[in-house]
């Protein structure tokens, strides 16, 4: 059974059909790319998948479970985590606390225990610290654990955002333009990181990207969007050779 099944997803803003009849099927473990010119509706698809927008029509199924219409926080608990095109870290919190917020729903103690630091507090906090450090270690951020996240260099901020998303133990990870604003070195490092997550956590990843080197380098399959509609989908090589796609990107 497919991990993610999206059928006939559509949304209209005013008179504009931003996403029209969007279909997508992802198997477990796939690394899937979503590309298209500016304004094609890629981020809108992400916002629909994560419940930021409510779809006018269509069905979203994750691992057999219908999650259409769930709210953002529920969808994260259902198993879809995401990063953002413009980085959204908790900028006044230390690096480790950013990840610990991601771990929020996997560890539990009551508000009273929060206020009094009694009961399960010390034990659970220690477990959370260990778990967070393990994740930071994977992303090579463990030395920066006490930095304010706003003070990290750009590339590391991107990594921290991915680490935070991974902390929620998702089944599916959505990356919204992870290489935006990165120099070639940083992009290369990012590609390694993405490969690493895949191998280490056996993660299924859907990513939006403009950097064709990154897309052709790591994505196995692609869907191309243009004006809210699917232009082409299939294996990366075939899609990138498709004359329609080239036309949409470069023009005739």
């Amino acid at each position: 059974m497919a991990l993610l099944e999206v059928t006939n997803l559509s949304i209209t803003f005013g008179g504009l059909r931003a996403v029209d009849n969007f279909n997508l099927t992802m198997e477990k473990g796939e690394l899937y790319g979503l590309i298209g010119p500016n304004g094609a509706g890629k981020t809108t698809v992400f916002n629909l998948l994560t419940g930021v927008y409510k779809a006018d029509e269509g069905l979203i199924k994750l691992d057999g479970l219908d999650i259409t219409g769930h709210r953002t926080a529920e969808i994260d608990r259902d198993g879809i985590a995401r990063t953002f095109q413009n980085i959204r870290l908790f900028k006044d919190l230390p690096v480790i606390d950013n990840v610990k917020v991601g771990l929020h729903n996997q560890f539990n103690y009551s508000t009273a225990e929060s206020m009094l630091h009694c009961g399960r507090y010390h034990k659970v906090e220690k477990e959370m610290d260990e778990e967070a450090m393990k994740l930071l270690g994977v992303f090579d951020l463990d030395k920066e654990r006490d930095y304010l996240s706003a003070n990290l260099p750009y590339g590391k901020q991107r990594k921290l955002e991915i680490a935070r998303a991974m902390a929620t133990k998702p089944k599916l990870l959505l990356l919204d333009e992870p290489a935006a604003g990165m120099n070639p070195n940083e992009t290369a490092e990012l590609m390694e990181t993405i490969q690493l997550i895949r191998d280490k956590f056996d993660m299924t990843i859907l990513l939006i990207e403009h950097d064709m080197k990154l897309v052709s380098g790591i994505c196995e399959k692609l869907t191309v969007l243009n004006f809210g509609r699917i232009l082409a989908h299939g294996d990366t090589k075939d899609v990138l050779a498709n004359p329609e796609v080239i036309k949409a990107y470069i023009g005739e």
């Binding site: 953002t72 994260d76 995401r82 953002f84 959204r88 917020v101 929020h104 929620t168």
Partner: peptide, 9 residues
């Protein structure tokens, strides 16, 4: 960041 906080559940 309210949106990010919602997105991590």
């Amino acid at each position: 960041n309210r949106i990010a906080s919602e997105s991590v559940g």
